[in-house]
Design a protein around this nucleic acid. Structure first.
Lengths: 221, 221, 221, 221
DNA sequence: CATGAATGAGTCTTCATTCAT
DNA sequence: TATGAATGAAGACTCATTCAT
């Protein structure tokens, strides 16, 4: 994924060498520039030239750190996927565990915190990520697919436990995911005014659990 | 939006001339080709050359009918926006009108029918529409904004009538919209197997109204 | 091998259209420039830019007529191979045919005439043709291989007829070919002064047949 | 030609310092790698990077030993030229000397032995040497020119002595040289199967002296 | 001496758009 | 109107060479 520093012996002691640190800094510098530009203009409207100008490096230097324009883009998103995936904890339904709802809210909190710190990438993902490349589209679909599956499994568990009503769990999983994506877009990309992530999270959970219907209202027909 | 036939005397009577009819046919022929290609490959991966080859016209002819590659793309989506907008009827809450739920389901039915007949454009919109152009992004945001507003207004009405529980209607509107978009993507773009639009619509409405919670379950919190 | 004019109906009558004639002229114009440059500077030292400047066309125009830099180079040499191959007649040893030697000289004459008219390509071939590309190297080797085989076959026939002394015909074929190549290089590429192709041809044949030994001299050994 | 060790006190005694020996070893190490690569892939397809990787040295180190990519290439061939030149002994026609033919065959033997030990350079020379550079082309032409002159002089001597028939010695010299080059290419580069250098040498000499004609055959013409 | 990160001129190629016919 | 040859700005990427450490 990363362009390896051209051969050379592996790190000999546990500490990173000065050169390695510099290398990492350089990479970060380029990644930062690229992240910002991709977020602002999208993948296609951002040229390698734009990136090297923004990162203040020479053309060749870019290719010293990244295989290609595609590669840096992928790295940006892969890092994000990994981070995000690490953020989510499976809901623990064993006796003695915190109530599932609290766990869900905690997950959302952690996700929101991660997104908050990565607004540009969130923007990239939600806005310009389709249509770059067949392979990339697949990767993206995979990611969302895994998330949807996670939700679906949770729903099934809930149904088994009698907490979730009878429904098509696959379809509903997509509904939930769609809602989450859209709201994230509003809050972290568009930056809707007065959005308190905590409140947003609760509202999201509330909506997913109970819908919009007033409790006492007649059953829809 | 449409490239005007370059000057010439205006049509004086209500009937369209033979030339005009031919012109319209040509346009349609090009639009069809473009729609298919944009849907298959996305905006950037589709070249003007691809379009003229598929439409079997000369390069120059393309620019006789459309200002630019962007213009034809926009036209495709504009036409779609207009059609879709015409599909939705505002929920009539006056006494004697059909129950709101029935009206909502009817709306969904009409929307689904329209989408069904326009799968390629749906694909374009849901997949490759971001990141083409700043102006286009705005247009897209506008469209979804209008839809969200529609939903939000319905929610407020519902709250006033005591049918909808207390919530942040703006936020919930985005939740609903997101769910709808995602499900549409599954059904009309990915083409999820065994998707009966009627059933999907009902599930969508049910989820939006009642969430996933089993009725008798204890109140979350 | 040639980049086809983008689709379009085949020629309808026997005559070539005006457009086709213009196209052919353009091609020739570019080919001429490329031929001259490749001959002067070699393949690698000639950039597409050099060619379009010399041909006085736009960058894109080049790719309208040729797939790539490689393609125009190959076309140049392929045309040459074809022409040259058409120049050589197999030696006719049937009774009543002109004496083989006269036929050989005639072949050489025709070859020399063809080379004379294509000095730049000869230069390209003899000087810069190696090391462009593995595939091209193969093509080149093939060409010379076929020529050598032709000579070898002639030698075998001669041996069968008792005209040619016992020898390793394959090896001797390479000797002959090498001599011919080298002399061609002197005459047509370096442009050795006072080179009368007719005399050169005779000397070449004489050498190949009789070597340098004076007739009466003692047998070597 | 060689990049001088950057200043430093000149060596004062005849012995080489340890540093110098190391330097020479390094050079050899790089030269070996370059030779192999140039032979395998040709000049243009071999990058400085390829060389330093193969030689296992740092990029900068390369330029400590060689002015440029061109310089190392030239050095490779210069060394070859020098070696080869030292291999050839002028034919001694003074009374009491071994017969000229035996001397010629001895020369060929030594040349072949030298080539045998330097197949990679032979390959470089015969295959990719043209088209690198104007100056280099000149150098190459010079080398072959000197060889041709040597042959021509031998032919003239032979003519004076009545051993060689009347002919254009310059032209015939090129014939001979061409044959030798081509055969060398077959034997040492292509590696023609079953090529016994000794036999090849004899066949080459035989052909050059006596041509292909059967002894008793009627005079051509 | 050795290193290897940095450089930037230069390469081939694409493609939206124009315009003379 | 229709055509399609021509255009040239712009793109991604390579690689010989330099220089601070």
């Amino acid at each position: 994924m990363q362009k390896a520093p051209p051969a050379g012996p592996a790190v000999e002691d546990g500490r990173v060498s000065r050169a390695q640190r510099l290398r990492a800094e350089r990479r970060a510098q380029v990644l930062d520039a690229a992240r910002r530009l991709f977020a602002e203009r999208g993948y296609h409207a951002t040229s390698v030239n734009d990136i090297i100008v923004a990162a203040d490096i020479a053309r060749g230097t870019f290719y010293l750190y990244f295989e290609s324009k595609r590669a840096i883009f992928e790295e940006l998103l892969d890092e994000f996927f990994t981070t995000l995936a690490g953020t989510v904890r499976r809901i623990d339904v064993s006796p003695g565990a915190p109530p599932p709802l609290a766990q869900m809210l905690d997950n959302l909190r952690r996700i929101f915190a991660a997104l908050e710190a990565r607004r540009p990438v969130v923007r990239i993902l939600l806005r310009s990520a389709g249509g770059i490349d067949e392979e990339f589209d697949r990767k993206l679909a995979d990611f969302y697919g895994r998330v949807a599956e996670l939700i679906e499994r949770a729903l099934r568990t809930g149904m088994d436990m009698g907490l979730v009503r009878a429904c098509d769990p696959a379809l509903v999983a997509w509904c939930v995911l769609g809602g989450v994506k859209e709201v994230i877009d509003r809050v972290f990309v568009v930056g809707a005014p007065g959005a308190d992530p905590e409140a947003v999270g609760r509202e999201l959970v509330e909506f997913s659990l109970r819908g919009v219907f007033a409790s006492g209202a007649a059953k829809p027909g």
